[in-house]
Every structure is written in structure tokens, then in C-alpha cells.
Design a protein around this nucleic acid. Structure first.
Length: 480
RNA sequence: GGCUCGUUGGUCAAGCGGCUAAGACAUCAGCCUCUCACGCUGAAAACAUGGGUUCGAUUCCCGUACGAGUCACCA
């Protein structure tokens, strides 16, 4: 059975690149009806962030990436939080020492700092690699702090086959004797994830390509234990565009790059998922780019994953988001809008009608407030706004005639719905010898105070109601 | 700097030895229209570079350039 895992460290927010890793990992498992595991990697005790795990869980819940095993939900391979598995790692580390694949190191941090500053490329000098048994016993007995390091082969090469990048081969001389167990008794990522992936039966290790070159070290660990190596699926990095046109790993300086940021900015989770699914992966053949999570499950295959890094394009995400919003049914849209509308809406406003007009004209929910403002407060505008080339309006006298006629008609109109309004204004066209478009243009400007509006004149009037309509036309007339 | 990986239009990308090199976003133009948006139609726009291999390279191999990642008691 295919088993994958998403193994974030609780840093307090869900980077969009992490979310994509989670997505792909989930899809690989679910494509095969496999298991998806959530594991929290909190071995760095100094960087723990309060409540960070909740952010991870809620993000997965909102996006529908439900895990079969993990903290709270349980499973047969628990616990799923690394800090709760502490004893396990030491046990395996000691086993490695006994087998000769790892060793105790008593070097002080100060000594290591010196090593690094003198020769940045040298790395650890393997000072403790060959300590005598007696010396080790002595140090241990006297309570000198220690770490456990992996004993890398000095010669030869180590290679593995990545499902995306193919064969990766490294000279063993390039591999550092990396630390497996830290002085505080916690394992490093380098060790913990290997042990856990094995113990949890993970068949596909899915992660960002920054691990491509350190994987030989992990592979060596599997080999040392005599465990079968998992499939490695390294994903191309997500990049952000810098102001000078260059690109670099997507980070905060590129804008809102956490899932929460995007949601707060009015992006829909479905749109985000849909967009990032396509960043670095492409379906075999498809006429559309729109996919639900369920569709992705059946479509997703590893051979569709790209090798080259992908630039995160906010423009396209925005487009996707707009498409998702436009397709929302009205009820759902009203519901979602609530959180984003900060302005209080006066009683005269037909809120539902207004939101319906807005629905197809926003690309993200956070645009709502600004776009609805003119319904509530008539903006300041110059009378020149009435001029319009296409409708041949260059004479304010004409505008005045139109508005006076409109005012008269509208005063007698009692049902302020779109159709009625349109039908009562229509006859003015013939009466004044003008095109409908020209009549509507004048009314629309008067009633909105804006050159471009969501909805036409009659739709706007329907939203703001009779009193406000008459008042706005009155104000326009006063301007002329 | 060493090592590893990558390179098709501005961006995401299809292509897996022979094609007028798809499609999407963005851009521009036109249509539709009660302005805008939506929608529709169309346009412009790409195989980093030099060598091979081959009857034939975007596709395979090597070099170069450029870009990225990695070299922690962080993950």
C-alpha cells in the first residue's frame, strides 16, 4: 500500500510551498487509495511556536487534505509528534553506534565554531571518529555532553533513484559526518525522519528538492539498518519574482505567501489548491485547468511532476480565484462576503442585489468593500464626467434635459426593480431622440458618480432605492 | 568556492527523433453591451549557447553560459 506523509515543523504559519508539498503527498497516497499521515517534526526545541500545530491542522482541514493517521486522530504507528518519540531515536542511534555506523562526539560547540570560521568548506574534522572505547566510556561516565554522528564512508559513491529527478549520485567524500542526536537528547531532522518514515511504513518520501543532495546520507542510514529504501519524490521549488526581475525561493518578501495570508486576502481555498496543484505538475491530457480535489486524486501521477522550479504567479492565482468566485452560487457568496464587508450597509441598500452585481466583478473577496463604496456614499465628481465620446455627449444641456426627464419619470415609478426601471426609462429614448445608451449613460453617471460601475444604471437604481436615486439625480442637476 | 539539479513565449506549461512547437494567465485589437466586468473572436510572443550522434534534433551525448539548491547540535 502507498503511504505518504506530510511532516512539517511547527513554525506558526503554513507556507504555500509547504502546502503544495502536503497536497502532492496527499495526492500520491490517495491516487492509490493509500494512507496519508501527518507527523509533527518539533525536534528543534528552541524554535517552537505556540499554537503552530493548530495552524497546520486547520489548514489541512480547510483544504480537505484529511490524514488517516496523525496527532489526535491516532493510528497504529503513533505517537505522531516527534517530541513524544524521543526515546525511540536514542535507541536506534545506539544501535547504529554498536554496528559501527555512528559514533559519540564530545567536541564542544566552541571548537566547531572555530572549525567553521577557519575553513567554511571543510566541515567537521571527524575529531572524535576514532576515539578509543576507554576514552568514550570515561567521557560518558563523567557526564560530558555528547552528540552522536553518522560515520560516513570515506570513499566511493552513494546513489539513489529519485522518482522525479532520476539517479542522483554523490561522492561519499562530500558527505559530512552529520549529527544524528543532539546534545539535548533530541534527534536532528536528518535522523528522526528516517527512523519515523521507516517505522510508520512510509513508501514515498515527498518533499522539496532542497533535500536532493542530502538524501544520499539518509539512504546510507536505511542501508546501515538493512531497511528497504523508500521511493523518493523531490519536488521542484516554488520561486518568487523579485522587483529587479530575478527570482529566488518564494518567501515573505514576495508578498502574502502563507495560506492564512491568502485566505485573509479573500482567496478561496479551492482556488488556491487548484492553482498550486498546477505549479510543478501537469495532468497527462486535459482540456481544462479546473480541478476539484477529487479529480486531482484520480489524475495525479508522479511522472507529471516537473523538474524545473516554478515561479509563483499571483496574477494567475487571482484569475483562478475570480473564476471560482463567479461560479459560487449567490447564497454561498453572500455567506463568504460577510467576513470581508467592514462597511455597514444602510437600510435603503438592497444588499442581495448589490452583492449579485459585485459577484462577477471581484477577483478576491477583499475587493468587496472598495467596490461597493459608491452604492453607499455618492462619490465627489466633476460634471465633465458626463461627457462621453461614444454616446456623443458633449453638451451638458443635453444631460440636463435627460436627467430632468428621468427625474420626472422615476418619481412616478413605484416599483424599483430592474425591469420596471428599464421599461420606464426606455420611452425617453424616442421622446428625446437619443439612443438608449446615451440616456442610460447620463442616468448612470448621476446615480453613481463614477465612470465605470458594476452593473448598469437601472441595476444601480434598484440597489440604492427610489429615495436615494431621486436625491442623486437632484444633486447632479444642481451641478449642471 | 565544492557538489547536485535545472534551462520551451513575461509567467505556468504540453512535447518524450520528423509537428505550421499545444493550451492557460498576462498583454494588445475587435465583437457583444445600459458604463465596467463576464463572454466570444483574433494578434503578438519561446525551444539559452557551441559542438557532436543521426538521413533528420526542442527532444539523445559533451562543453559553455545563466539560474537555483545545498554544504548547521534548522528543518
Amino acid at each position: 500500500m502507498t503511504v505518504t506523509r506530510f511532516a512539517p515543523s511547527p513554525t506558526g504559519y503554513m507556507h504555500i510551498g509547504n502546502l503544495r508539498t502536503a497536497l502532492y503527498s496527499y495526492l500520491i497516497a490517495k491516487h492509490d487509495d493509500g494512507n496519508f499521515i501527518l507527523r509533527i517534526e518539533d525536534t528543534d526545541r528552541e524554535r517552537l511556536v505556540e499554537g503552530a500545530t493548530d495552524v497546520i491542522k486547520s489548514t489541512l482541514a480547510i483544504t480537505g487534505l484529511n490524514y488517516d493517521e496523525g496527532p489526535e486522530v491516532g493510528g497504529e504507528h503513533g505517537p505522531y509528534v516527534q517530541s513524544e518519540r524521543k526515546a525511540i531515536y536514542m535507541e536506534y542511534a545506539k544501535k547504529l553506534v554498536d554496528m559501527g555506523y555512528a559514533y559519540y562526539c564530545f567536541c564542544t560547540k566552541e571548537r566547531l565554531e572555530e572549525l567553521h570560521s577557519e575553513d567554511a568548506t571543510g566541515g567537521y574534522d571527524r575529531h572524535c571518529r576514532n576515539l578509543s572505547k576507554e576514552e568514550i566510556e570515561k567521557n560518558l561516565a563523567s557526564g560530558i555532553p555528547f552528540v552522536i554522528r553518522q560515520k560516513m564512508p570515506l570513499e566511493g559513491t552513494t546513489s539513489y533513484v529519485d522518482s522525479v529527478f532520476g539517479e542522483i549520485s554523490m561522492n561519499n567524500s562530500e558527505l559530512q559526518d552529520q549529527i544524528l542526536m543532539k546534545a539535548d537528547g533530541y534527534p536532528t531532522y536528518n535522523f528522526a525522519h528516517v527512523i519515523d518514515d521507516y517505522l510508520m511504513g512510509v513508501t514515498h518520501v515527498v518533499r522539496g528538492s532542497e533535500y536532493l543532495t542530502s538524501t544520499p546520507k539518509y539512504v546510507l542510514l536505511y542501508d546501515a539498518f538493512g531497511w528497504e529504501r523508500p521511493n523518493y519524490v523531490h519536488l521542484p521549488l516554488l520561486m518568487g519574482k523579485n522587483e529587479d526581475g530575478s527570482v529566488s525561493k518564494l518567501s515573505k518578501r514576495h508578498g502574502a505567501v502563507s495560506f492564512q495570508d491568502l485566505v485573509r486576502d479573500g482567496y478561496l481555498p479551492e482556488a488556491i489548491i487548484n492553482y498550486i496543484a498546477l505549479l510543478g505538475w501537469c495532468p497527462k491530457q486535459s482540456e481544462t485547468e479546473f480541478f476539484t480535489l477529487d479529480e486531482l486524486k484520480t489524475l495525479f501521477t508522479i511522472d507529471g511532476v516537473s523538474k524545473s522550479p516554478a515561479v509563483f504567479d499571483f496574477e494567475k492565482l487571482l484569475w483562478f480565484n475570480g473564476e471560482y468566485i463567479h461560479k459560487l452560487d449567490d447564497e454561498k457568496f453572500y455567506e463568504l462576503s460577510k467576513e470581508f464587508i467592514k462597511t455597514s450597509i444602510p437600510a435603503n441598500i438592497n444588499k442581495d442585489r448589490m452583492l449579485t452585481l459585485l459577484k462577477t466583478r471581484v477577483s478576491k473577496l477583499s475587493e468587496l468593500d472598495e467596490k461597493m463604496e459608491f452604492f453607499i456614499n455618492l462619490p465627489e465628481y466633476e460634471k465633465e464626467l458626463f461627457f462621453n465620446k461614444k454616446n456623443k455627449i458633449s453638451d451638458l444641456g443635453v444631460v440636463k434635459t435627460v436627467l430632468e426627464a428621468a427625474l420626472e419619470v422615476l418619481s412616478d415609478t413605484n416599483s424599483f426593480d430592474n425591469d420596471t426601471l428599464f421599461n420606464s426609462l426606455m420611452p425617453l429614448s424616442e421622446k428625446l431622440g437619443m439612443k438608449t445608451g446615451a440616456i442610460m449613460w447620463c442616468v448612470r453617471i448621476a446615480v453613481s458618480g463614477m465612470a465605470a460601475t458594476p452593473g448598469g444604471a437601472t441595476e444601480i437604481m434598484e440597489v440604492i432605492g427610489k429615495d436615494e436615486t431621486l436625491s442623486r439625480i437632484g444633486k447632479a442637476l444642481a451641478k449642471l
